[in-house]
Design a protein around this nucleic acid. Structure first.
Lengths: 225, 225
DNA sequence: GAATACTGAACTGTATACAGTAAAAAACAA
DNA sequence: TTGTTTTTTACTGTATACAGTTCAGTATTC
């Protein structure tokens, strides 16, 4: 036993993960009030651990809380999404610069190999799968920067814009892989400025692009039901 | 009544704020186990709302949680502090660049005025007061960048290194104000690259500096008791 | 004496009860 | 009808009880 945490997930952790997934995929509608009794029954738990999980998700901005009225799903506000994209760009640009300084040749080689495996074409993948693949690439890069704190916050930012990226990926599916390749090339050349510029261009979105994609997101959220 | 939230703080919010302060100032010793019954009694509440507050603080990394063993105060690890300083630098450099693009002349003017008021000298202030003043400056700058998400995360990062900065401020008290002035000058000249470089130099710490200051922090934490 | 098994105290994990509050429904007045 | 008050209902807020687990201290065995 080399792992130091073989312990089963606590009930709060379990609820936390379940509800987080539901919030990410907008199984709760934006702004929807969450009925504790009903949700607890549905997830087979009582209100006490449920509320503990919900409080964690409030701290992570997946839910909001109003005194006396309970918990609500977050909204999908264009301005907030814009700021999250801007934030994501800042984090990834910083990560790619740090990676230029810190990563070994083998590290970069492994990243290039990952891109080769997943191929330049989308191979008939769904946008869900493409977003996952995209996330893995960015997470690998983040890991190479060796800053866990930034990595953790990036995970949170990504989770909060994930639904939105499913929509976005449809429009960008052919470009993504090629842009990743360019970034890794710059990384191998240890050209931090170029890598940073490419990353920024890869991620940055204008507010009007975001607003348009949010409209599309809304229709998907409410079509599903 | 112009404000839309005149409501009193909920009990969970109240506990959350109290315990957060205790965690920031290491009133709980690093790694110390938190006794729920005892803490609930001390704060005049029952375990249910207390645990909800504690769960929020786990999500914000002020506390850790172990299944079956409860809640613990965070540790003071040099590597983690280093990563938080690096993170802080990334956030502030990004903020100062965004401010260069977004802020109005009046905004920058107001920031300069704030520096004038608080004077180039430390005026016999304690390091607690100086850190607070320093924080206000950086928060104002962050506000001008108009990104609430980054601002919120910066607040969290600052809170987590706050105790450490009290120690650090003693060594730097004469330099801080002058460096702030240089940054605002660059801002007024709209020189984003210079402002970014100055900010990075203002914040960045080497791992060995951090390790040394953490030793000092430990002695303060355990001297107090 | 060291390692192991046992036992009890202390503490956490969760269900539940009930009080308090907000929202919805009903009753009433204009 | 429309607006206002009252009543009812539903849901949240919190205390508490008790079950389950951890941990320390003691006894037991080799």
């Amino acid at each position: 036993m080399t792992d130091k945490k073989p312990k089963a997930l606590s009930r709060v952790d379990h609820l936390y993960l379940l509800i987080k997934e539901m919030a990410i995929s907008f199984e709760f509608k934006p702004g929807e009030r969450i009925n504790e009794v009903e949700l607890a029954a549905r997830l087979g738990a009582s209100r006490t651990p449920l509320r503990e999980a919900l409080n964690r998700l409030v701290a992570e901005e997946f839910l909001t809380f109003q005194q006396g009225r309970g918990f609500f799903c977050r909204q999908l506000k264009p301005r907030e999404m814009f700021e999250l994209y801007q934030f994501r760009s800042v984090l990834e640009v910083a990560a790619v610069r740090l990676t230029c300084e810190n990563a070994t040749e083998d590290d970069v080689q492994e990243l290039a190999a990952f891109l080769d495996e997943t191929g330049p074409e989308d191979g008939g993948r769904s946008s869900e799968q493409l977003v996952s693949l995209d996330e893995v690439f960015h997470q690998k890069l983040m890991t190479l920067s060796r800053n866990k704190e930034m990595s953790r916050v990036l995970d949170n930012v990504n989770a909060r814009i994930k639904y939105f990226r499913w929509v976005d990926m449809d429009a960008r599916r052919t470009k993504t892989q090629g842009e990743h390749r360019q970034i890794v090339d710059a990384l191998q050349a240890r050209d931090a400025d170029l890598a940073a510029r490419l990353m920024d261009a890869h991620i940055s979105k204008r507010l009007d692009q975001i607003t348009a994609a949010i409209k599309e997101s809304y229709s998907r959220i409410y079509m599903a039901s």
